[in-house]
Every structure is written in C-alpha cells, then in structure tokens.
Design a binder for these strands. Sequence first.
DNA 1: ACCTGAACACCGTTCAAGT
DNA 2: ACCTGAACACCGTTCAAGT
Lengths: 196, 196
Amino acid sequence: MARQVDKSARRAEILRAGDRLLRERGLQALQIREVAREAGIAAGTVYTYFATKESLFAALYAEQILRTVEEFKPYLDAPPREQFIRFATSYRDMYGVFGREVDVASFVTPDSLVDGRTIEELLSATSQLVELMTEFITKHDVPQPELTLTILWSLLSGLALHYSGPRQVFGTSDWDDAVGFAADKLVDILLPNHTR
Amino acid sequence: MARQVDKSARRAEILRAGDRLLRERGLQALQIREVAREAGIAAGTVYTYFATKESLFAALYAEQILRTVEEFKPYLDAPPREQFIRFATSYRDMYGVFGREVDVASFVTPDSLVDGRTIEELLSATSQLVELMTEFITKHDVPQPELTLTILWSLLSGLALHYSGPRQVFGTSDWDDAVGFAADKLVDILLPNHTR
DNA sequence: ACCTGAACACCGTTCAAGT
DNA sequence: ACCTGAACACCGTTCAAGT
C-alpha cells in the first residue's frame, strides 16, 4: 500500500511548521494544535513523530545549532576578534528565537520528556558547537584552556541573554559596542599569546 | 467589624507559602492551588492579592533581589576580587531558585501580566542591585564604565546560567575555579588601575 | 498500519453564592 | 466586604473509532 507521504517527509513537515510558528509568532505560539494545523494533519498525529512537545522543541533547537555551526564555518580562519563577534551574534540570534528556556542539560536529564533520538541529535549538534569554541581556544595556545572555555561560554551566554528578547530597562550599550569591547578584552586578556 | 487577618499580613502569608514551594519543590510546583493550600486559603483568594501568577512570581523575585542586596552589603569595602566572587555566588544561587525565566524587562513590558505595584517593587529592587554594580565600577575608576558594566553583568549572568540548574553535560570547571579565574581576569583587564 | 479528533487531565482564572 | 470553590478556558496528551 503506497503511503501518502513517507514518515521522514512528514516528520520534516512538522518540524518546518513548528519552526515557522516559533519564528513568526514566538515560543508561546508553539502549540501542538497550531503546529498540526500548519502541517495539515491532526493534533494526535504529531505524537506519532514526537513523543512530547518538548521533543519537538528540542529537535528544532538541534536544527538551529547545526545551522549556527554552518554559519560559523566561513570564519574558521578569521582573526580571533572577528570570530568572537560572529559567534556572539549567532548565539544572540539563537537566544532570540529559542529563548532562555533553552538548556541542553535539562533535556538530557533522566526525567526529561525528550525522546532518545532527539537527545542524540541535540548532543551531536551541541558537541559540534562546543568543538568550535574548543578549537578557537586551543588554536591560540591559551594558558588555561579549560577555565578559559568556561569563561568564554559564560560571556557568550550572558551577552546573548542581555541582548535578546525585550529591550533592557536599564541603559545598556549598543550591541555592536558591547560585543566589540568584549572581544577586545577577551583577546587582550584570555589570549595573551596573540599578537594583533 | 474586626477582620480575621489584615490584608498585608495575608499577602505576606501568600508570599511565604509561594517562597516555600519554590525553594522546596521548584518552579513547577509553584501552582496557585498549591500556594493557596499552603497559605490555608481558597485558590480564588490569591487573586485578591495578586493579579496573576506572574505577579506573585515577580513579587517573590523582588524579595529575593532585596535579600541579595542585603547579603552583599558586608562586602562593600572588600577587595574587588572577593566582591566579584560574593556577588557571582549570590547571583548563581538566585538563578538556581528563580531560573532562567527571570527577566525583569519582560515583566515591565506593556503587555506584562504583572500588576503595577509589583512592577514598582521589582524596579526598585533591581535598581538597587544595579547600583551595587555601578558603584563597584565607578569606585575603581574604570576607563569605560558603561561598557564595563555591560560585560560585568553578562559575565555574572552567564556564570549563573551555567552553574545553576542541572549539572552540565560537557565537562566544565568547578564553580570555585571558574569564578576565581573570572575574578582574576576581570581585575586584571577591566580594572587596570587597581593594584593588588 | 496509520490517522483522526473527541475526550481527558491539568492548571490559571473567574464569579455566583455564601458568611 | 471578604472568602469560597465550582466552573470555565486553555492546551498537552491519549485512545477508541475510522479508513
């Protein structure tokens, strides 16, 4: 019996529907009934492809991380300052769509609602992202790579947090100024072996 | 007619009930029915004191911010490295309880579900917290105070984000090591006029 | 086999009725 | 006046019935 659509195509349609909703109308619009309507199927059918709503969200997030990794690849040989700025900007944009709810660790928890397949995808995507940062650090011969990675990651997350979502209440600098300043200081301080 | 309890006492009881639930059983346990049960009143009564669940949450958050400010006051004259570590630790603990949902800016948005009184409390508390950071920076005669404040704040949020909540998937440093390293670099780089 | 969508569970919120 | 709690609205999820 020829199927109307094959399973992976339908899964992809659901993902595309979810992505569209998320980007056009925000996280609160990502509702199973809405996703199903956008995908042209019944609500119950979504659950044939994703164990829970959280699984769908995590799968969308994994896709976005892979896109971010691809976006960065042209800059693999750029100067560290530019690399930082590119990375920080991608990261901020990601936060703008997926929000602070994003937490790979919480998806991987034993009591997570995310299904095994999606966890795999998420871990794979995340490790590629981490790999980019690790290369950044090892390439420049940083004295304390482990600690530097932690600080680098924190700085990126913190910047993304402050510059995504609703405008800050308390006067903060422009994004360009802030990320440029952070990049300068990072290069000066964390990459002492780097000559500009 | 003597009231059973006066209004502000009852409001305080609801806050205490909510705080207990939040700390003992996490954000997902902060449900209006649960809060009401803990406070010994009917669910509907909660709405006499707080316009929405979000208002209650925001009020709890405002209280916590004030507590954080108080916690920091003994260290107002401590060396900058220690100040940073104290502040970062309080901030991380706050994140652990209130989570990444915490976003003052989103509460203040025109379409916010938080009532006016609570917004006032939140703004007042937050500006006290920001004031602490601003003093930290102005006292040490930093060349670019505005940008430095942004970076400092981002670093604090990023560290809090990574070290609160579920354990990180990818090997990260100990909290003590990470925050100590961040403090060293911050002092070296952002406070060039400081002599250790 | 796979899909549908009515029905269930859960939780924020409202409001008619009680004191 | 203030409080109660049943009822409503909403949304994630299930599953009996349809094809």
